[in-house]
């Protein structure tokens, strides 16, 4: 059955729906295993071997090794569960969330201190806000890209 997905037009946003949940089941299961201190230790000691204990796809394992949270989410991860990877690395929720935007930690923190990301231009695809595909990556990384080779 095809699912009706009226939410696909929200920029920079993946909804954790049935399709994502099916795809990401083992990835998310690996993540919640990190709630146990002994598992965090084992993962830290030898990440690849620990990942190989889970029936995840190679792409999912690589995304975890790369700490590429956007890719993890694309491959079915849910941030509530993925956050256990960041916590294992000693990263805060804010550092994790910020890492997905391309902004530096400081840029993202400043954005939050100044009221967060604006609603304007960021509700639907086709608008002109900073979360829109045409404005990636965000922050100084995007400015360097425009000035340099990109």
């Amino acid at each position: 059955m095809a699912l009706d997905k009226p939410y696909l037009d929200i920029p920079g946003t993946t909804i954790f729906d049935a399709e994502q949940s099916r795809m990401g089941y083992h990835l998310n299961q690996f993540c919640v295993s990190l709630m146990k201190p002994e598992n965090r230790e084992r993962f830290r000691a030898y990440e690849r071997a620990y990942l190989d204990e889970w029936p995840m796809t190679e792409a999912q394992k690589q995304a975890v090794l790369d700490r590429d949270l956007n890719r993890c989410i694309q491959l079915g991860g849910n941030i509530y569960f993925l956050a256990r990877i960041g916590a294992t690395d000693g990263k805060s929720f804010q550092q994790m969330a910020g890492s997905m935007t391309g902004m530096t930690e400081e840029e993202y923190r400043n954005m939050m201190l100044h009221g967060g990301r604006s609603v304007e231009g960021n509700r639907y695809l086709g608008e002109d806000g900073d979360a829109q595909p045409q404005h990636q990556p965000q922050g100084s990384a995007g400015k360097q890209g425009k000035a340099g080779k990109k």
Binding site: I10, P11, G12, T13, T14, L69, N70, I73, I79, A83, F93, M96, A97, G98, M100, T101, G102, Y108, M111, M112, G115, G116, R117, V119, N122, A131, P133, Q136, Q138
Partner: peptide, 17 residues
């Protein structure tokens, strides 16, 4: 209340709403 923890739209806040 409003928050988004993931993706390129992370940090989204809607005070008015």
């Amino acid at each position: 209340l409003s928050h988004q923890l993931d993706g390129k739209r992370a940090g989204f806040i809607n005070k008015e709403f």
